[in-house]
């Protein structure tokens, strides 16, 4: 069984460490916040200008002046701090954020990422993604292994306009956990019941498979 979005988030949450400052992108990455292990001190950065992002407000307590980078109403936590957008990207650029999790349309075997534009079709913009991928020390991508047509999104080279070059360190897809190494995608774990053969078939970029590949255990 391929992982669902919640399971992808749950697996990524295992990469968190106590004391981490983490930026979570829109979509599946946002769900990672639900799986921060109890007792672990992780501070969430929202690039519109907040460190210490809390959960959604209770109904009736929404504050229009308090939103996250996805424009959703949120709350603060004890120790939260607000700042302007230049400082927000300053701390990102200076490498103060320990981990960035974001989505992708395509990732290449060299760690290039494309996630902001489909020429002639989708014009939404890169938001903060280009700044994040250019400076983050550790980038994990949460994505589907293939597109709805079944074509691989893990490619020898991205076909869409790039967001960043050689920056992705790890991918957690619905089928597998992979590291990006100088030699290509290295298969680390597979989703429960998903065979190595299926992952090989659905990975267009160079895939390294060494020894037994364990299943992800939840």
């Amino acid at each position: 069984m391929a992982l669902n979005k919640e399971q992808i988030a749950k697996r990524i949450a295992r990469e968190l460490k106590d004391g981490y400052y983490v930026n979570l992108g829109i979509g599946i990455p946002t769900l990672v916040a639900n799986y921060i292990p109890a007792g672990m001190d992780v501070v969430l950065q929202s690039e519109n200008g907040l460190l210490g992002m809390g959960p959604f407000p209770f109904e009736g307590e929404e504050d229009p002046d308090l939103i996250n980078a996805g424009k959703q109403t949120i709350t603060t936590v004890p120790g939260s701090v607000f700042f302007d957008s230049a400082m927000s990207f300053g701390m990102i650029r200076a490498g103060k954020v320990d981990l960035t999790v974001l989505g992708a349309m395509e990732v290449s075997e060299r760690g290039d990422i494309a996630n902001w534009k489909i020429p002639g079709k989708m014009v939404k913009g890169m938001g903060g993604a280009m700044d994040l991928v250019a400076s983050a020390r550790n980038i994990i991508v949460a994505m589907m292994h293939t597109n709805p047509k079944g074509e691989s999104k893990l490619l020898p080279a991205c076909s869409l306009p790039l967001t960043g070059v050689g920056c992705v360190k790890k991918i957690v897809s619905d089928l597998a956990v992979l590291d990006i190494t100088p030699q290509g995608f290295q298969l680390l774990e597979r989703a429960p019941g998903v065979s190595v053969e299926e992952i090989i078939a659905k990975t267009a970029g160079k895939l390294i498979v060494e020894g037994e590949i364990p299943e992800i255990v939840f």
């Binding site: 690039e47 302007d84 957008s85 230049a86 300053g90 990102i92 938001g127 903060g128 280009m130 700044d131």
Partner: peptide, 18 residues
């Protein structure tokens, strides 16, 4: 934008701020 009525320059958010 797609009809060409509007000129658009998309730039990274941190670049815009800086």
């Amino acid at each position: 934008l797609l009809s060409g009525e509007l000129e658009v320059e998309l730039i990274p958010q941190g670049t815009l701020a800086t």
